[in-house]
């Protein structure tokens, strides 16, 4: 059985936002790489799938993009969180925590009374 799981759309957006919050402005490759590293290589991420998520977030105004130059002098498109993006991230984070907290209760082994 394949240990590495596919990433599904909704969480991808949240991961991208969280990554940008942690790293500050970052390019697509950096984001993809960071997501994979953070998941400690559990996620089998095709780097290409980051881009539709980035486009969607940009369309919705949560992130903004700008061409710039990297540390090693390479031209790249950098994405950064907008104010709306930060708000959305806070909201989504809370929602996620609530959801997982609820689900967690279901997976607690039944206690003997």
């Amino acid at each position: 059985m394949n240990e590495k799981t596919d990433v599904w759309q909704g969480t991808m957006a949240l991961m991208v936002l969280k990554t940008l919050e942690a790293l500050g402005p970052q390019h697509g490759y950096g984001i993809a790489r960071r997501i994979e590293q953070t998941s400690e290589n559990v996620l089998a991420l095709n780097y290409g799938t980051v881009y539709p998520a980035l486009v969607k977030l940009e369309q919705e105004g949560y992130i903004a993009a700008e061409w710039g130059v990297s540390d090693n002098n390479r031209k790249a498109k950098f994405y950064k969180l907008t104010r709306a993006g930060r708000k959305q991230l806070a909201k989504e984070t809370q929602k996620w925590e609530t959801t997982t907290a609820i689900l967690a209760r279901f997976f607690v082994p039944p206690q003997e009374s």
């Binding site: 390019h27 790489r33 881009y51 990297s70 498109k77």
Partner: peptide, 13 residues
């Protein structure tokens, strides 16, 4: 262009 730069980063790594 963006993809090109993406690949360049990756190849470099």
């Amino acid at each position: 262009e963006e993809l090109e730069s993406h690949l360049a980063f990756h190849i470099e790594d």
